[in-house]
Design a protein around this nucleic acid. Sequence first.
DNA 1: TTGAAACGGTTCAATATTAAACTATATTGT
DNA 2: ACAATATAGTTTAATATTGAACCGTTTCAA
Lengths: 160, 160
Amino acid sequence: MEALFIMVAKHSGTSQEIKALDAYITLRRAGNTIAAKLNRDIIGHKLTAGQFGILEALFHLGPLSQQTLAKKILSSKGNITMIIDNLEKQTLVKRTASPDDRRTTIIQLTPTGKKMIGKIIPGHLKKIISMMSALTLTEMTELKRLCKKVGLSNQLEKTL
Amino acid sequence: MEALFIMVAKHSGTSQEIKALDAYITLRRAGNTIAAKLNRDIIGHKLTAGQFGILEALFHLGPLSQQTLAKKILSSKGNITMIIDNLEKQTLVKRTASPDDRRTTIIQLTPTGKKMIGKIIPGHLKKIISMMSALTLTEMTELKRLCKKVGLSNQLEKTL
DNA sequence: TTGAAACGGTTCAATATTAAACTATATTGT
DNA sequence: ACAATATAGTTTAATATTGAACCGTTTCAA
């Protein structure tokens, strides 16, 4: 479920407040629209969002501990255990003990897993590019600047 | 879990492609940062996002059928049944039969529910406004225009 | 050095979520 | 009129998600 926008539409306040709410709702809608399309893509490949996130992180960053994965995809430790369990059942990843720290398990892509995610990512990127191409180059740059300004001043942490 | 951005950062392509991906990732991050804060607010009130969405819709739009609620908060019918069950247990909403159609149940806020959501919403709006106020008025307007342009050309459906 | 605290992972209970099958009711086309 | 179809909601099975309790390991500070 995604945040609702009815309250925003119904709000009456100063012109500045309305503009702020209005900008927020539009920002969220644009993002959600795109994210929904990407998600359909992921589901089409028989993966959940969490599974996709893990595979992608491993693909781009190499083997990682579960702890690190939890931070990367912003999910609870318990959930990571479950996602890895399921990915392991499909032999897309495998657990290995860390040589440095006996508490830690390192997650690696199997060849199957690597092949699979490697095939999905290009199409995924193409979708994003195609959707953002509603904007001109100048507009993309400006959108980025504005979003950064909003994001930075409200930041919680910098993943990635 | 939220879409991962590592792939975007790692992508090498034409300058236009990189700008498109870059704009997307920043857009998503800004939105997610704000949404995460709002979500913490909701959890702080002992509500799930779905419960909050339902209460808010009922507050602003009056009694609605479960079908309508499902569309409003973009959730499955089955899930709505469950959310309403839980809200009913806490006596925040109640089910009533529709006089027009015997298949339909109409969901209404109880006085308790109305009081509760009515108390939460103003703070919620204030949070959004405060976070968006990183931007000037002109910037808000421009952000809205750009997001609308992206959103519209990729639209699935118009809720609300 | 050793006891306390922190950390990485797993497990558990509770709730959420979806998709599909199902029940009951309503609508529609012939 | 009535069979086919569509709709509203519930139920079920499978999986996801979180937070808390827990276990073993590591770190740190007195």
